[in-house]
Structure formats: C-alpha cells, structure tokens
Design a binder for these strands. Structure first.
Length: 153
DNA sequence: GCCAACGTTGGC
DNA sequence: GCCAACGTTGGC
C-alpha cells in the first residue's frame, strides 16, 4: 500500500467538487508530466490513500483524504482534439498518458497549510512538496511523513 | 502580477 | 547530445 499527495487548483477542481461527484468518484485526467505519469502507471494501486492538496490559491495546503479506486488506464482526453489536454503525439494503440479513479473519503478537520507543513521540514526530509521549485502534481508520501502531516490535523 | 524553478522543445 | 529559449507551475 502506497501513500500519495495530489495537487489540484480549487478553482478548477476542489475537494468539494470531488465530494459532489456521482459516487464521490472521478477520474483524474489531464496529467501531462512524465514523472507524474510514471508514478501513476508504475506505482499507484487500487486502495492507495491520497492527501488532497489545494494549490495556486490563497491558502495552499492539505484539505482532505481520498482513495485510489482503479488501476491505471489510458487518459482518453489525450485523444480528444476538443480537450485542452489533447496530445496529438499520444497514439491510441500505445497511450502516452494514464489516469486513475479517485474516490472522496473525508475532509481533514481543518486546512493543514503548506506553511504549517514546512515548519516540520526537519522531519520531512526528502518530501518533494517542500522542496524549492517543486512542480510535481502527484508525489509519493512516506508513511512517516503521512503520519506526521495527519498528526497536525 | 511577479518571478524562481523546472520541464520541454528544437536548432545545431 | 548540448543547451538556449520558451512555457508552465505555484508560492508569495
């Protein structure tokens, strides 16, 4: 079982948006970064747990928990010319981009802000979220780091 | 809105 | 295969 953090801009898709989806479930499309793709394709498994993080907003931070409820499968938006995620270079017979389905579990009792998480940097060695210039939209979270972040709740 | 940091692209 | 230019991310 692996642990993850995924970023989403709340203006585009928030934790409440996920909660309000039919079945509280949505496919996580639009990942167009090879490192993130490799995590999805190679390491994400059904049952893995995810910290839902709001980025590019007044209060960036962890806002909830969700669960991976599918194995990785091709991201069909890459084949749709009308999609903003269209990628002419992705061959349907050999898809370049993958996605998984996420299901809402719960919101955290309060926002666990990036600023607060950074205060524990000494116990979060190697955690990509607090590395300068980090742009990964999907990243693995060590169990110890997971426990620490949720202990702040 | 600014800008640092990083990934990607493309010329050579 | 190098690397400059460009685009994007995301905190502030």
């Amino acid at each position: 079982m692996n642990y993850w953090l995924i970023k989403s801009e709340p203006d585009a898709f928030s934790i409440d948006d996920l909660k309000n989806c039919p079945g509280r479930k949505e496919h996580w499309d639009g990942i167009r970064n090879y490192q993130a793709r490799n995590f999805i394709r190679d390491d994400m498994r059904k049952g893995d747990l995810v910290l839902f993080y709001h980025s590019s907003c007044p209060q960036p931070g962890v806002v909830g928990l969700c669960e991976i409820v599918s194995d990785a499968y091709p991201d069909h938006t890459a084949f749709d010319p009308s999609s903003k995620y269209y990628d002419a270079g992705s061959d349907p017979d050999n898809p370049r981009w993958m996605m998984v389905d996420l299901r809402y579990r719960r919101k955290t009792k309060r926002l666990i802000s990036l600023e607060e998480i950074k205060r524990h940097a000494d116990r979060l060695t190697g955690f990509p979220l607090i590395r300068r210039g980090n742009r990964l939209s999907i990243m693995p979270v060590d169990k110890a780091h997971w426990d620490l972040i949720l202990s702040l709740e």
